[in-house]
């Protein structure tokens, strides 16, 4: 394994072959906003928040799945990138019904943190206000589709770590929804082991423990021994 050198935000940094821009940036204390990324899970590059500019590339590249290369010149923050990121978060908010004030994850929510971080003070786009349901059939947990951002962390943790693959995504575009098994109520699922990992990795209040009231969600990620606590953001 050899060491590659590159510049991120004008700083000379080094990383191992096969490492991603996000890894190297974080190792060097350079912050890149992320949402679908969670250390310990595979990366899918779905949320597009970590897009960066790489000199010589016309396209923007997602830092979480872009391998570093010798001599790469990466820009993490530019006016365009910040505007795009803010717009992405705005689209996430307007696509479903995110009402922080009555949300179990209020003040403990990565979507909320991102809105604050990126200075999203209002929506320019109209709200879609879909009629999304709540599935509370599981004995201990529930899912509120109104608050889901389709980051698929739950799908990955269930598949890659628990090995159950209870979760998946059905439908396309604004119709896309998380499903358990083949689209049956969560409480009827016979693959679900009720381990609760999906609830712990959920960045918003979409997956919640029953009995928790507003702003009472606590994500115990450090207790998942195979997952490193979500770094880069203090709770």
């Amino acid at each position: 394994m050899s060491v590659l050198t590159l510049t991120i935000e004008g700083r000379d940094v080094a990383g191992q072959t096969g490492g991603t821009i996000l890894q190297v940036a974080r190792e060097n204390g350079i912050a890149i906003p992320t949402l679908c990324h969670l250390q310990g899970l595979s990366d899918v590059g779905a949320c597009r928040l970590c897009v960066v500019e790489v000199e010589g590339q016309r396209k923007l590249l997602p830092a979480c799945v872009t391998a570093i290369d010798e001599g790469m010149k990466v820009t993490v923050n530019s006016e365009r990138l910040t505007a795009y990121r803010r717009r992405i978060v705005e689209l996430l908010f307007t696509e479903r019904n995110h009402v922080c004030s009555v949300c179990v994850a209020d003040r403990n929510c990565e979507l909320q943190d991102l809105a604050v971080e990126l200075g999203l003070t209002h929506f320019d786009l109209p709200l879609l206000s879909p009629q999304a349901s709540v599935d509370a059939t599981h004995e201990r947990f529930g899912i509120d589709h109104n608050r889901c951002v389709l980051c698929t962390r739950c799908v990955r943790v269930c598949d890659e770590i628990e090995g159950a693959h209870t979760w998946d995504v059905m439908g396309r575009g604004t119709e896309a929804r998380l499903i358990t098994d083949m689209g049956i109520p969560w409480g009827d699922s016979n693959t679900c082991t009720s381990c609760g990992k999906c609830v712990q990795v959920c960045p918003t209040g979409a997956l919640f423990e029953k009995g928790r009231s507003v702003a009472e969600a606590r994500r115990r990620r450090p207790y998942l021994p195979y997952l490193v606590a979500h770094e880069g953001r203090t709770r």
Binding site: G45, A46, V51, K59, P62, A83, R87, I88
Partner: peptide, 8 residues
């Protein structure tokens, strides 16, 4: 423009 630039 955003959709073009940030899509996977």
């Amino acid at each position: 423009a955003m959709v073009r630039d940030t899509s996977l």
